[in-house]
Design a binder for these strands. Structure first.
Length: 331
DNA sequence: AACCGTCACAACCGCATGCGA
DNA sequence: CTCGCATGCGGTTGTGACGGT
């Protein structure tokens, strides 16, 4: 089977995203939704592969992303779930609202793993010392320890038990290799819901307490307050309430898939694409990027590359809530 | 001040999986 | 059933910040 390359090596930008690229991605996804990640960059005016756009959106730009330090509860949750699941970061992330699998994975490798191993080492040392002491006391009673098993098969506290790894530093993941997770799909949301019916109910009852509202919602505080749209193909400034309505309309239009019926006819040659991309290359002031109202200039994009107007769309009241799970974004 | 090592995080890459034609 | 495409996942790498020498 021949797989088309996920990234076009010619002319595709790589590396760190610029604020301008973020703005374009936010503007497009907010207005039109992510109807097709591979096609999206062309319509959004981004010289990125769809994969990169999706990753950027999912891990950084989408609403409800919780940033900042991990709480003790979150870390405990990660450690305990990792013990059961292994490196099933997406499933672990599903249990931590607002945290992405990438973020959890990074945090594990940079912080928790070391702490985990350190704790394990300390436990080993304590156990050895304890056993050694015990051995000495038993020596006095002419008792001989038969073999070295007492050194490795040590007793640990309940919390330490949950943090034990094997000698190689790798973690056991009994459930991940069992049939218990055979039905888990790659979809995060379905995983999250199905998890509740799997092994976590007993093992992770403490997770219920870890659902406090996010206080660090940078999306609602920094983005959508200032991003608004009208109902034409252009993005203009306006009041926030209108932005919600129009974004909702856009999402509804995505649900109605207007673009999917026309995208096949909207092929853009690379040369043309590169040409109108140049219009984005003006320098921007990054220091006020997050605070200034964003007006995405889509005038350089041929009108037939924009999703048809959604002004006629009706019945859009619940789409925003359904997709992003919050209705008080502009309260 | 310059260099270097470490760390945290963002992003990339390859592969797996689901799904529709 | 096969094929091709889109998307998701997990491992790995790249990069910038920061502190120590």
């Amino acid at each position: 089977m021949v797989r088309t390359p996920s990234c076009d090596k010619s002319g595709m930008r790589k590396g760190t995203w610029t604020p301008e690229e973020d703005k374009k991605l936010i503007a497009y996804v907010t207005r039109y939704g992510c109807w097709n990640w591979r096609q999206l960059p062309r319509f959004a005016g981004l010289a990125r592969c769809g994969k990169s756009c999706r990753l950027r959106w999912m891990n950084y730009l989408r609403p409800n992303i919780k940033r900042g330090n991990f709480t003790q509860e979150e870390e405990e949750c990660i450690i305990r779930m990792h013990k059961v699941l292994g490196n099933k970061w997406s499933i672990i992330a599903a249990e931590l609202p607002g945290r992405t699998d990438n973020e959890i994975k990074n945090h594990w490798h940079t912080s928790l793993k070391k702490r985990f191993q350190t704790q394990n080492t300390v436990t080993n040392e304590r156990t050895k010392a304890s056993k050694s002491k015990d051995k000495e006391s038993k020596k006095g009673k002419d008792f001989v320890v038969p073999n070295n098993d007492v050194i490795t098969n040590f007793q640990v506290t309940p919390i330490a038990t949950s943090l034990i790894s094997d000698n190689s530093g790798s973690l056991s993941s009994p459930a991940s290799s069992s049939s218990e997770f055979s039905s888990i799909t790659s979809d995060v949301h379905s995983s999250a819901s199905s998890n509740q019916n799997l092994v976590f109910e007993d093992e992770f009852g403490f997770l219920d307490a870890n659902t406090e509202p996010m206080s660090d919602n940078f999306w609602s505080e920094l983005f959508l307050d200032d991003i608004s749209f009208n109902t034409t193909n252009e993005i203009v400034s306006g009041n926030a309430h209108g932005a919600l309505q129009d974004a909702t309309k856009a999402l509804e239009s995505c649900a109605l898939s207007p673009i999917q019926t026309t995208s096949d006819n909207l092929v853009l040659e690379n040369d043309d694409f590169g040409g109108f991309l140049d219009a984005y290359m003006e320098p921007i002031a990054t220091d006020n990027f997050w605070t200034q109202p964003f007006v995405a200039d889509m005038s350089h994009v041929p009108s037939d590359l924009l999703v048809p107007s959604v002004a006629e769309s009706e019945n859009f009241s619940t789409v925003y809530d359904d997709l992003w799970g919050q209705s008080n974004l502009y309260d």
